[in-house]
């Protein structure tokens, strides 16, 4: 298997037709990083994720998985990389007409040749990792918003991925569950050796688990800062970044 890490973004321009969202985006995500994409609402964080996971070709620039140029390759090659990553969408995106068990089982059925009983056990296990054992026969519409998020997480980790993409995993979760989720993300990284790339607004998680980050700004249409969020909060001179990282109070952490 070819290496797909580190992931680097080189001089990326994101746009919807003529409407340019962000320009000159470059950063590198090392293996084992928990990489945070930050920025105000509507600055293009979800769009950046869509570029990284092959849903939208960039207008300009490159996305490199190790030495593999993601958007130059054909669709089959891209799929091989996506097979090794797990994705949690901002709205969960569970398939509404399938039960939780079927939702989590689909990636396993698609990419492995396991026997149905083994798949079932794996699904139960993944659901219990996110604290949803016993709910396997439920449909997404019968769950609370936070439970749906967790079920979507179980689906994202179904294939023990090397790369995890999360779009606001803790939005809609209570503080305790949200901290559990942070712990779970850490566990997953440490135990499976996964790399995590996530969009989040939760300052708590940003500081407690983030090891590297990029800050996008809507007005400047480019990134304002890169680096470890804690150091970023202490060292940056940019008022927008300071505002964001201190919730507008200007008081830097510790």
């Amino acid at each position: 298997m070819r290496a797909i890490q580190p992931l680097s973004v080189i001089d990326l321009t994101m746009a919807y037709d003529d409407f340019i969202l962000q320009q000159n985006i470059s950063f590198t995500v090392e293996r084992g990083d928990i990489f945070i994409i930050m920025g105000g609402s509507g600055c293009g964080k979800s769009t950046l994720l869509r570029h990284l996971i092959g849903l939208k070709p960039p207008q300009k620039g490159k996305i490199m998985y190790a030495d593999f140029d993601f958007w130059q390759a054909d669709a089959a090659e891209r799929e091989k990389i996506l097979q090794r990553s797990g994705i949690l969408y901002q709205s969960g995106a569970l398939w509404s007409s399938m039960t939780l068990a079927e939702n989590v089982a689909l990636p396993l059925q698609r990419y492995t040749v396991l026997h149905p009983p083994v798949v079932r056990e794996l699904v139960e296990f993944k659901l219990s990792l996110v604290g949803l054992n016993g709910f396997s026969e439920y449909y997404p519409s019968e769950l609370s918003g936070g439970m749906r998020k967790r079920a979507a997480l179980a689906r994202a980790i179904a294939l023990d991925p090397e790369l995890l993409f999360f779009d606001e995993p803790s939005a809609g979760l209570d503080p305790v569950t949200s901290r559990h989720l942070d712990e779970l993300i850490l566990e997953l990284r440490d135990s499976l050796g996964a790399t995590v790339i996530m969009v989040t607004h939760e300052l708590d998680s940003i500081y407690s688990i983030g090891t590297n980050s990029v800050f996008l700004d809507r007005e400047a249409k480019t990134m304002l800062a890169v680096g470890n969020p804690k150091t970023m909060a202490q060292e940056t001179e940019n008022p927008v970044v300071i505002d964001f990282l201190t919730r507008g109070t200007g008081k830097r952490p510790r």
């Binding site: 296990f125 219990s128 990792l129 604290g131 949803l132 054992n133 439920y138 566990e187 135990s191």
Partner: peptide, 22 residues
Amino acid sequence: LPEGVQSLLTLARKSTSRPLNK
């Protein structure tokens, strides 16, 4: 066992939601 195995196992087994299978 490797630490990753231990922590994931504890996590999965401490999950307390009761079996609600319909």
